[in-house]
Structure formats: C-alpha cells, structure tokens
Amino acid sequence: MTVAAAEDPVKLAEFEARLERGETIEPKDWMPEKYRKQLVRMMSQHAHSEVVGMLPEGNWITRAPSLRRKMVLLAKVQDEGGHGLYIYCGTETLGVGREELIEQLLTGKAKYSSIFNYPTLTWADIGVIGWLVDGAAIVNQTMLAKTSYGPYARAMIRICKEENFHKRQGYEICTVMAKGTPAQRAMVQDAVNRWWWPSLMMFGPSDATSPNSAELMRWRVKRETNDALRQRFVNLTIPQAQAIGLSVPDPDLRYNAETENWEFGPIDWSEFQAVIAGNGPCNRERMAARRKAHADGAWVREAAEVHAEKQAARAREHAA
C-alpha cells in the first residue's frame, strides 16, 4: 500500500486496530497524515457547504410569503451558519486555522457542495430545498454522526438534531403548494423537476469511480458508500412525493419488490463535473457574494479587536 508506506508501521497497525475495535479517534491521538488530510478536506468542504448554502435561501428571506414563513426561513438560514461554525471548529482540532480554511474557500481552492450552485427561481424552490437538499444532507450526516473522528462525529450529532426541522418545514411548504391552485402545483412540480437530479448528485460519484471512497471506508471516516446512501434517500423520498401527488423527472424510476428499492435511471455525471469545475449556473455569483460579505465584514472584525484592546488597556490602568 503506497499510502501507508511513509507511516510508522507499528503505529499504523495500532491505529487500525483501534478503528477495528470501533474506538473514536481524538485530536491528540496519533493518526496517519493521510487520515488527517482526508478529514481536513472533507470537513472543510462540509463547513463551506453550510456557509455557501445560506446564499440560495437567503435570497428569499425578504420575499417569504408570510411572516411565519419568514421567521422559519431566517431561523433555518441562521442554523446553517451555525453548522458551518461547528464544523470549522471541528476542523481546527486537526491543526488548521479557520482563517486558512476560509481563505481557501474565497480563493476558490476549496470546494463546496455542487448543489448550491443552482438558482432559487421561485418560492417553491425554498420548499424543495428543505425537503430534498436538507433531506439528502440528513441521510449523509446521520451516517457521519458515527464517523471515527470524535470532533466531527459530535458536530454531526448536534447538526442532525437541528436538520429535522429544516426538512419538515420544506416538506410542509411543498405539501401546501401541491394542494394549492393549479399554478402553485405547477410551480412546486417545476421546482422538483429542477432539483431532483442535483439532489441525487449530492452523494457524490458512484463508489466505483470515487477515488477516496475505499480509504475513507477503511478508516471509518465514512461508514457507508455513496451509492448506498443515495439509494436510501431515493427510497425515503419517493413515497413522500407520492403522498402529496408530485412526481420526479425520471422515466426509468420503478420499484423493485425483491430488493425493496426504488431503482432510478442513470445520473448525468458530466453535469456534476461541470458544476464542480466552476461552470454551474451560479458558481461565480456565489463566490462573489461570499467575497463581498467577507470584505464588508472586515471593519467589524477590526473594530472588535480595537475595542478589546482598549478594554484590556483600561483594565491594566485600573490595576496599576
């Protein structure tokens, strides 16, 4: 194994034996460099996704159709900011600073989930994001709550507790619209049509072609394959769609009574690759918005520092 060659074989064997026993790895424990690197990559991508994920939904806060919906959406978007911070702080336990991670996001070096590069064209998109995008995130994050790295697992447990409301509020919006006027029904169906395939892509490429999957599984960073998680999501979601009279845009979709799976048609991975490479409908807009927000907040960060310094100086004066 070329990966492990550089590591102390005795320590590596001990490490793998710990994982085998189902133990959790903590920040000060010995870990292979590759494990640390994979975690930093995965966790920072995850944190960035939470933060960038605020943008498509934030787009609708001022236009929410009622005060109730506006309060809910504000609370949800605030949660996503919190999720980003939980995971950034988890990533910092691996020895990278948050400013470094954010710099990587803002310079385009780091990736975030491709789903957030699609536009939110109508109010129905907000419902469908909660239902499908948060729904897919829950499937993934429930698996990650059992990941082998302690700080990541604990952040996921915290996040999972909050995500359920995100999905429910989204499904509620979809339910109301699906039962509404023909125009509302058409609007929510259109949103499902646009978000369905990108939601399935959220789980990442098939494991056969996913370069990191095998190692992540062996080290129990991931406990299930991308394909298994994707299938679980489809199985959960189709009955929910049927219950409110919506369909998904897949002519190949059929139930296999033997495997009890909803089998779905081929995913267009070229679209996924294009979006990841920066050519999705909103990549540039999202990054421009993040950079602007960061730059616009600079004076607040500076003011806080100056204020703290002044307070400290005053305290020293009093003490003298």
Binding site: Q78, D79, G82, L85, Y86, C89, G90, E92, R98, R154, A155, R158, E162, A304, E305, H307, A308, Q311, A312
Partner: peptide
C-alpha cells in the same frame, strides 16, 4: 459543546450564545 473565536470574554459569551444555545 465546541469552541468559538472571540476577542474577549464578553464577545466569546455572545458568540457562544448564538452558536451553541440557539434553541
């Protein structure tokens, strides 16, 4: 619960409230 970045104790308390005590 986790950690926050903050300039001083008061600021840390506010950030901790927003991040770890939202509900």
């Amino acid at each position: 619960a986790g950690s926050v970045h903050a300039v001083d104790a008061e600021h840390a308390m506010q950030n901790a409230r927003d991040i770890y005590a939202r509900r």
